[in-house]
Structures are given as structure tokens and as C-alpha cells.
């Protein structure tokens, strides 16, 4: 109350006059200011996002091979081709399996790391940095390390050396899809690369939970450990968890680098982007079919995002907290 009174009292004529003029000037052109601030971003968005999307839509109706300025209109042929292509449709399945697995796993793993680091009494900064460091590594570099040294199929690959101590035969981790060891390689690479970043998010959220909550819980008889975690920590992390799950889903949608670099000349383990690259872009240079695939993906992503917004309430203001 006193706060509202103070400005009332301290509002004599001169003080009102001098700041008001420039402010009125600004206010007078609110529209201009709006465009001034959002303009550069919107221009970028239009040039780099919307124009390519529209161009893609346009291309998808043409026979565009080895050109991005085609002249042969072929209607929905490209869409028919992509939708009747088992590999493309199959890759949507691959993606679903991949996302269904990697999202909860990374979520649990980074939360676990955050809890561990949060309980450290000493060297916390050190471990925080160590776990965060892989985030700075590029997916391509990590893929090469995973492929060439850790999961190399020859006897001196790291994993095969370790297995060799127990008398287990060499495994061709990436070359042989039966059993599908390549998932182990991909998932472990992704976990290593991503967990640190989400750990930091969780760590920040953990440190924001008021200590009083735990004290009150202890007084009420909650046992430390699982009970406290289940009823205090986890609910308090809800907002962060939602954000992390969303970010992870987006990251899974964008999966390309490690799949592309780890698996060569396969027909399996291809997320939609990789499939598109091989089927239509890359070497085939069929921009029509490629664009049709991209449009199909875009529509799917829109649908999934809307659906997810419904369920998680993301973007509905306070509800998400």
C-alpha cells in the first residue's frame, strides 16, 4: 500500500512534465516501435524460415531433379511417391521408437546426475563442469569417437577389448544389424552429449526448491530419500521437467548427425530427416520428392505439437507451472 502512495505523493508538476515528453513521443508511435523491435527478427524469419517452407511447398508439386527452379508440374506424384515409400513411412516409426526411448531415458539420467551433483559437499563445481562439458562437443566429433575408438568392430576397439577380457567374441557394433547393437551406440552417444545440459537445468531447479519444504516435511514425518523425493522434489520440478521433455522431443525430431555419421549405407536406424536426405536430397538430388517429404514432416510436427500442447498445457501461461 505504501508503495502505491509514495508515487502519488511525489507527483508534482515539474517531475511529471519532464519525463512525460519523451515517453509520450515513444508511446505515440507504438506501431513503429513494435516493428522496430520485431522487424529484424521477422525479416530473418521470413527469409530463412517461411520463404524456404513456401518454396518447398511449391517444389513438392514439380518434377525437380537437379534443379530448384523446375518447370514440370506433376501434381501430387511426389506425395504419392513418398507416402507409398516403405522406407520413409518406416522411418517415422523408427523416430517414434527412438523418441519414446531417448526422451524418458535422458530425462531420468540427467535428473539422476543433478540429484547426485546436488548432494555433493565438495568439488561440486568440478563435477558440474565435467558433466556439462560434453555439451560443448559436436555430434559429428562424438560420432567419430564412438565409431572409431569405442565401438570399433575390430579387436582393439575399446568395448571389444573389454569384452575380450571375459572371453566374448568381437562384436561388429555398427556393421551388423542383428542384434541391433547400433542402438546402444547411438543412445549412449546421445546420452553422453545431452545429459549434461539438462542436468544443469535440473540443478538450477533443485537449488530453487526452498529448504523449508524439506524441513516441514521432515517434521511431518516424511522419510528422507524416496518419500521426500516423490512428494517434494518431483512436484517442485514439474515446470522444469515439462520444459526438458519438450526440448528433448524437439531434439529427437531433429536427430540427424549421429545417425548420419554412425550408420552408412543402411536401410535401418534412419530417422525421417536422414531418410529424406538419402532418398531425395544428398546424391539423388530429387528436390520435388524431398520437398514433399519435408512438407509431410512439417504437417506431422505441427499436429504433434498441437496435440502435445493440449496434453501438457504448455504455453497456457500459469498452468504450466
Amino acid at each position: 500500500m505504501s508503495v502505491t502512495k509514495t508515487p502519488d505523493l511525489a507527483r508534482p508538476a515539474p517531475a511529471k512534465a519532464s519525463p512525460a515528453r519523451p515517453r509520450r513521443g515513444l508511446r505515440g508511435s507504438a506501431t513503429l516501435n513494435f516493428w522496430l523491435f520485431t522487424g529484424p527478427f521477422l525479416i530473418g524469419l521470413a527469409i530463412f524460415i517461411y520463404a524456404p517452407i513456401l518454396w518447398s511447398v511449391w517444389l513438392s508439386f514439380f518434377d525437380a531433379r537437379f534443379t530448384v527452379t523446375p518447370d514440370k508440374f506433376i501434381g501430387f506424384d511426389n506425395y504419392t511417391y513418398m507416402l507409398t515409400n516403405d522406407d520413409f513411412v518406416g522411418s517415422l516409426g523408427t523416430f517414434t521408437v527412438f523418441a519414446a526411448f531417448i526422451v524418458p531415458t535422458t530425462w531420468a539420467f540427467s535428473l539422476g546426475l543433478a540429484l547426485l551433483v546436488n548432494r555433493l559437499r565438495f568439488m561440486r563445481a568440478f563435477f558440474r563442469s565435467v558433466f556439462f562439458l560434453p555439451t560443448a562437443c559436436s555430434y559429428v566429433a562424438a560420432s567419430l569417437i564412438w565409431k572409431m575408438s569405442i565401438f570399433s568392430g575390430v579387436r582393439f576397439g575399446l568395448m571389444n577389448t573389454v569384452l575380450g577380457w571375459f572371453g566374448i567374441e568381437n562384436i561388429a557394433w555398427l556393421a551388423d544389424p542383428n542384434p541391433p547393437w547400433y542402438w546402444l551406440v547411438i543412445v549412449s552417444a546421445r546420452l553422453w552429449l545431452q545429459s549434461g545440459f539438462y542436468m544443469i537445468l535440473f540443478l538450477a531447479a533443485l537449488q530453487n526448491i526452498p529448504g523449508e519444504l524439506y524441513e516441514a516435511a521432515a517434521i511431518d514425518g516424511a522419510k528422507p530419500g524416496w518419500q521426500t523425493f516423490r512428494h517434494i522434489t518431483l512436484p517442485q520440478l514439474r515446470a522444469t521437467s515439462t520444459a526438458v521433455v519438450l526440448l528433448l522431443l524437439i531434439a529427437a525430431y531433429q536427430a540427424f548427425d549421429e545417425f548420419f555419421n554412425l550408420l552408412s549405407k543402411t536401410t535401418w536406424g534412419r530417422p525421417p530427416l536422414v531418410e529424406l536426405y538419402y532418398k531425395a536430397l544428398g546424391e539423388s538430388q530429387d528436390y520435388g520428392a524431398g520437398s514433399a517429404g519435408a512438407v509431410i514432416l512439417t504437417v506431422l510436427i505441427c499436429v504433434v505439437t498441437l496435440f502435445q500442447g493440449r496434453i501438457m498445457g504448455f504455453g497456457r501461461g500459469d498452468e504450466s507451472k
Binding site: A175, N178, K265, T266, T267, W268, Y278, E283, S284, D286
Partner: peptide, 19 residues
């Protein structure tokens, strides 16, 4: 062409490396 080449590489992937 390259597209055919890739298609035949898929044959090897599907029927030799996979069953």
C-alpha cells in the same frame, strides 16, 4: 545413375546385412 546405385546398395543392406 547414382539413385540406382543407392537403390542396389539398399538390396545389400536389406538382404545381406539384414535377412
Amino acid at each position: 545413375t547414382q539413385a540406382m546405385r543407392t537403390a542396389f546398395e539398399d538390396v545389400f543392406a536389406n538382404s545381406v546385412r539384414k535377412d
